[in-house]
Design a binder for these strands. Structure first.
Lengths: 234, 234
DNA sequence: GCAAAAGTGTTAATCTTACACCCATGT
DNA sequence: ACATGGGTGTAAGATTAACACTTTTGC
């Protein structure tokens, strides 16, 4: 009976639902995180992940895409739910639960300009500033998840340009795993999966000799999955 | 400017936050799910996961433990967050986001009685009834997660009694993975991890000869982790 | 011509898989 | 004595890990 009473009581208790975005990028061989100066009190001016309250008339996933669009101008970005943070006192102002979602975006000149306009900054993942609330915890959890997921799913490619070289891909994985990989074994492994399509172009930015460019072939990846073979890098 | 206006507007929009529990158990060689008859309109009497609104003054994790306690009488149960479900129209009555958490519990006679008192029923995982809302989707996602996590973390033991035999453990993993395992290879693998402590007792319920009982040794598991060796079963 | 990154194979070690018979005991 | 599940080892195949030199080209 006391249970029922309390249940009825609780029915009235709505709370704020926010979504915060952990935005990863890759540039100059470094894994980077996009952080923002908070624009509202309390904690105005502190470093923070970008986030927003979820609207009553929008799906959670849509809210994440909206936040990203409003903050960076980017659309159709790879995004995946991490987990929800719901400690009762995680936000000092009011009771608020936050659904963290992480995004992988391709940094290029265009993006960088947009980002600057929005007052944001890319930080190297191992030189992050102190973030508000539980945002550092979110980043930590997201990085663990990224390390894990990049290994078993081809999500790393979301961080690279459409055309990339094998050394670039290796450098990305080294940044994610935070350890060095053997170039010969790495090349052998990724090529053996048959999901990379070799192009007739070379990228000369990385060396005088130039390295061949590749594209990720999604159809071949689907075939790989159907064959029962397990995608795994490192 | 229109962004700012809408942001301010949105600040007022709270919503219901619920948590739903996917409760797994293991009995008679089968992986089972605990489902409940919904007690409130709408959809009263339909099969459902057990859940509750999260209270303003309780952590998300605590809410999960409370739900489980109220529904089954069990305390200190293994529980882990799955993900949050936030489609805007997932609940026809009102806007509500649900944080799904999955629990692993040891079924025994005592538990079964409690469960019955609460009007719940254990269903085999591959003969589930139709559940309300997006609950079947939650179960599906939880099962995928369980398959994955049981492989890399010693959470399977949460489903077994404190003392168990190797054949029981194998049967559990077969139920989770939904495929048969080779008895010799399985035994070799789990014993090689050095996290099982062999007891001087035998369990005779499974055969005339009886099988030795083992206990999971958490300290040894910690040592295994520190050694850098990767826990993996199958 | 030299510095700098791209590209290429082999071997040993490890891990995984497949597979068949004897053991202990209750009936 | 027999039926039932418990317990044991080995060999072939697959995967991983370690390792060094040649190629190309801009300067």
């Amino acid at each position: 009976m006391s249970q029922n009473t309390s249940d009825l009581y609780q029915v009235k208790e709505k709370m704020y639902v926010a979504t915060d975005c952990i935005i990863f990028g890759f540039q100059d061989g470094k894994l980077k995180l996009l952080v923002f100066r908070r624009k509202l009190a309390p904690l105005e001016g502190e470093w923070s992940l970008i986030g927003s309250f979820v609207r009553l008339d929008e799906d959670l996933e849509i809210a994440g895409q909206r936040v990203l669009r409003e903050a960076t101008g980017l659309e159709n970005v790879f995004m995946q739910q991490l987990k929800s943070y719901g400690k009762k006192d995680r936000d000092p102002g009011y009771r608020c639960i936050s659904v963290a979602q992480y995004a992988l975006i391709r940094i290029d000149q265009y993006d960088e300009k947009l980002v600057e306009e929005h007052g944001a900054k890319w930080y190297e993942i191992d030189h992050l500033p102190l973030l508000i609330l539980d945002h550092n915890e979110m980043v930590h959890d997201a990085l663990l998840q990224l390390k894990h997921n990049a290994r078993y799913k081809p999500i790393g490619f979301e961080l690279l340009p459409e055309k990339f070289t094998i050394p670039q891909l290796q450098s990305l994985y080294e940044a994610i795993y935070q350890r060095e990989l053997d170039a010969r074994n790495f090349r052998k492994k990724v090529l053996s999966l048959n999901v990379l399509e070799k192009l007739d172009e070379k990228d000369k930015t990385g060396s005088k000799r130039g390295a061949f460019l590749y594209k990720f072939n999604y159809e071949n990846y689907q075939k790989l999955l159907k064959s029962g073979y397990i995608f795994e890098i490192a």
